[in-house]
Simulated scan of single mutants.
Amino acid sequence: MLCAVYKTHKKEGMYLYVPKKGHFDDVPEALMARFGKPELVTIIALEKRERLGGVDKQKLIEALSTQGFYLQMPPKEDNLLEQHRESLGLSKTPDKKF
């Protein structure tokens, strides 16, 4: 099974996987509007890959087969300020003073 991988310039680390190059018919219009103009990154032969960076191969294949696309979201960024406050024994967010 082949799939095409596209990136967006709107959000770092967000990728859209579709079963064929340029095949966005199954991607909801609202998602395409938020994704913006897709830029082709690569075409992958899934059967030749044991691992895919940041994507569960089985979930990807299932999503492509059932819904016709897979959206990879960027990993959640650590909030270093919250971590630092917790290490000091403080609450994650400062108390608001009015």
Rank of each mutant, 00 (worst) to 15 (best):
V41H: 03
R49N: 13
I43N: 11
M14I: 03
G22Y: 03
E62P: 00
L40S: 02
P28F: 05
K57T: 07
R34Y: 09
F24I: 01
K48C: 08
A30Y: 14
E29K: 13
D56R: 14
E29Y: 09
A30M: 12
E62S: 06
L52Y: 05
F24Q: 03
K59E: 15
E50Y: 07
G53L: 13
P28Q: 04
G53S: 09
K48V: 05
V27W: 06
D56N: 10
Y15R: 09
K21S: 12
G54S: 06
M32H: 06
E12M: 07
K20A: 15
Q58F: 10
G13N: 02
I61T: 07
K37L: 13
R49T: 03
Y15G: 00
K57F: 01
K37Y: 09
K57G: 04
A30L: 08
P28S: 08
K20D: 08
L46D: 06
P19S: 07
I43P: 07
A45M: 09
L46P: 09
V41Q: 11
M32C: 10
D25R: 07
Y15P: 00
A30D: 14
E62L: 08
L60W: 00
K37A: 13
P28D: 11
T42R: 11
H23W: 06
P19L: 05
L60E: 00
F24K: 02
F35L: 12
R49V: 07
M32F: 02
V18S: 04
M14C: 12
L52R: 03
G36E: 11
L40G: 04
A45G: 10
P28E: 04
G36H: 14
M14F: 00
E62Q: 14
M32E: 08
P28L: 11
Y17W: 06
G54D: 05
Y15D: 00
Q58C: 02
E12S: 05
H23V: 00
E29C: 04
V41Y: 09
K21L: 12
F35D: 05
G54T: 05
F24G: 04
L40H: 04
